[in-house]
Every structure is written in C-alpha cells, then in structure tokens.
Amino acid sequence: MKQNPKDIEDIDARIASLKGKQTAKREHSELAKFWENGVRAAAEFIAPVFIGISIGYVLDKCFDTRIFFMLVLAIFGLAAGMLNVYRLAKQIEKEVERNK
C-alpha cells in the first residue's frame, strides 16, 4: 500500500494531541485527589468531635450530669479526630511513595 507522508505527519500530530489529553486528564485527577484529601481531612477531624458532643449531650440528659459527659467525650472526640487525620496523612504518604 502506498504510504502518504502526510499520513505520518497526521499520526505524529494525533499522538501529540493524545499525550496532551492524557496529561490534562492526569492533572485533573490530581486536582480531584487534592480536593478529596482536603475535604476528607476536615470531615475526619470534625466528625468524631461532633459525635462525641452529641453522645455526651444525650448521656448528660439521661444522668443529669450537666456537661460532664459532653466535655469528656468532646476531648475523646478531639483525640479521635487527630488520630484520623494522622492516619490519613500516613495513607497519603504511602500512596505518594507508591506512585513515585
């Protein structure tokens, strides 16, 4: 089959365009990952504090202990939040090392 040199030029241009698209896709997925991690860190930190305060509020109502349980469980929630963020950071570190 006769090969047209223009076809080869076209192929080069198409490969270059495809590579450009792939780079853009990778950047897009990195942005999504960045977003995901940021939102996740915030939620993982706040959620146990909120849960702790909520359970503490209910227990205080049940046992008529003013704010004792709320305070204690808020502190535990804070600790759990920090632990969650630490675990997330370790997980991200592992992923970054795996992708290197």
Partner: peptide, 8 residues
C-alpha cells in the same frame, strides 16, 4: 477514642 472514630 477508637469507638468514636468508628462511629464518626
């Protein structure tokens, strides 16, 4: 702490 972490 771990229980709250799970429930969260």
């Amino acid at each position: 702490v771990e229980t709250l972490s799970l429930l969260a």
